[in-house]
């Protein structure tokens, strides 16, 4: 027993010095910067987090805590996704935090995708009648890390629509039961109306 632990100690010592040698061999580089980690996101989420694709959300100016939470939920698998879960597992927690910090500092740019005025008007009514405005204040402009409330104002409408359909189908962390049950009663056209209303709020 005693013998064994000495051997373990010696082994550990060897490993440690091997590690030190390895470190000495390659000059210690500065850790990857926030921009180094984050600029790779642009391939899907657009330059500086302003997306051009209809199914893709813009992520610029997202509250850092909200984004960190989302990324951690993607990483753990708690938040359903097609691809973000696979990508998030490639990063250390601290790196996800740095990515969230980076995007939180970038300016929001509302979508240029045109909205349908009729749908916008219907959506404005639903926003009030379905009490969306009790959490999504200022017509979807507010963000709250505490409640997991993300900005929808000026977001790409097709993304908003797809995401609400997802919320109808399965549970998401941060989506309260009340919101789920309200959403489940809405038709596809209602969801389109809400999506167009929020997208129109620049």
């Amino acid at each position: 027993m005693h013998h064994k632990s000495i051997r373990t100690l010696v082994m550990a010592g060897c490993l440690a010095s091997a590690g030190l040698l390895a470190l000495a061999g390659t000059a210690l580089a500065e850790p990857a910067s926030e921009s180094m980690l984050s600029n790779t996101c642009a391939g899907c989420h657009g330059t500086d987090g302003v997306a051009a694709g209809p199914a893709m959300p813009s992520i610029a100016n997202m509250d850092a805590k909200i984004m960190e939470n989302l990324l951690m939920q993607f990483k753990s698998g708690e938040r359903p996704s097609t691809i973000m879960g696979r990508i998030a597992t490639g990063y250390e927690d601290a790196e996800l935090k740095a990515i969230a910090q980076h995007f939180s500092k970038l300016p929001w740019k509302s979508t240029a995708v045109p909205t349908d005025p009729k749908l916008v008007a219907e959506g404005a009514k639903l926003h009030k009648s379905e009490k969306c405005n009790s959490c999504h204040e200022e017509d979807g402009r507010t963000q709250s890390a505490e409640d997991g409330v993300m900005r929808q104002a000026g977001q790409i409408p097709h993304y908003l629509f797809l995401q609400m359909v997802n919320y109808q189908k399965q549970e998401y962390p941060d989506v309260p039961k009340k919101m789920m049950s309200r959403l489940s009663k809405l038709s596809e056209k209602d969801l389109q109306a809400l999506a167009h209303f929020y997208a129109s709020q620049k």
């Binding site: 642009a42 899907c44 997306a51 209809p54 199914a55 097609t82 691809i83």
Partner: peptide, 19 residues
């Protein structure tokens, strides 16, 4: 959904290159 993301991927990466 992945097919939808493919088109979105394209538009964002083109904007990253050409805008």
């Amino acid at each position: 959904m992945e097919a939808e993301f493919n088109e979105s991927w394209y538009r964002s990466i083109m904007a990253d290159m050409f805008a």
